[in-house]
Computed example of a mutant assay.
Amino acid sequence: MPSSVIRSYSYSAKKSELTITFVSGRRYVYADVPQDVFDAFRAATSKGSFFNSEIRDCYSCFQLSS
């Protein structure tokens, strides 16, 4: 999963939560992300571009402590 912005990600279908770890080391949990949005994110050629247009500022989030 090469990305210049996103180091890793995981998704909980049960909670509809997307957890993203950025290359900076910061980790955020995005709430109420539908499965189809996660599937599209996972399939996206550019994870960073998809994140910026379809996830960031579209879902509530909180930062996990490092």
Rank of each mutant, 00 (worst) to 15 (best):
T19R: 13
V5Y: 14
P34T: 02
S12V: 00
F41M: 01
D39F: 11
A43P: 00
T21G: 07
M1V: 10
G48N: 05
S65D: 11
D39A: 12
S46M: 04
S46V: 05
F41E: 03
F50A: 07
A31I: 15
S53K: 14
A43I: 03
G48K: 12
S16D: 07
L18Y: 03
D32S: 08
R26N: 15
C61F: 14
S3Y: 04
S65G: 05
S60C: 11
F38E: 02
S16T: 10
S16Y: 05
A40S: 09
P34W: 08
R27S: 10
S3Q: 05
Y9R: 01
A43T: 04
V23M: 11
F50G: 00
F38N: 00
F62S: 01
M1C: 14
A43N: 07
D36F: 09
I6F: 00
E17P: 00
D57A: 15
R26K: 13
R7S: 12
S24H: 04
S24Q: 06
F62Y: 12
S46P: 05
Q35F: 01
Q63V: 02
V23N: 13
A43D: 06
I55H: 08
Q35S: 05
N52V: 10
S49P: 07
K15D: 10
Y59F: 10
E54C: 12
S49R: 11
S8Y: 08
I55K: 03
E54T: 10
K15F: 07
S24A: 07
R42W: 13
S3D: 09
K47Y: 08
P2Q: 13
Q63P: 10
F22A: 09
S60T: 11
S12P: 02
F62T: 01
Q63E: 11
K47V: 02
Y59R: 03
P34C: 07
L18S: 06
S8W: 08
F51N: 01
F41N: 01
S3H: 05
S49I: 13
N52R: 14
E17Y: 12
S4T: 14
A31Q: 15
V33L: 03
Y30G: 06
S49V: 13
A40N: 06
S66D: 09
R7Y: 10
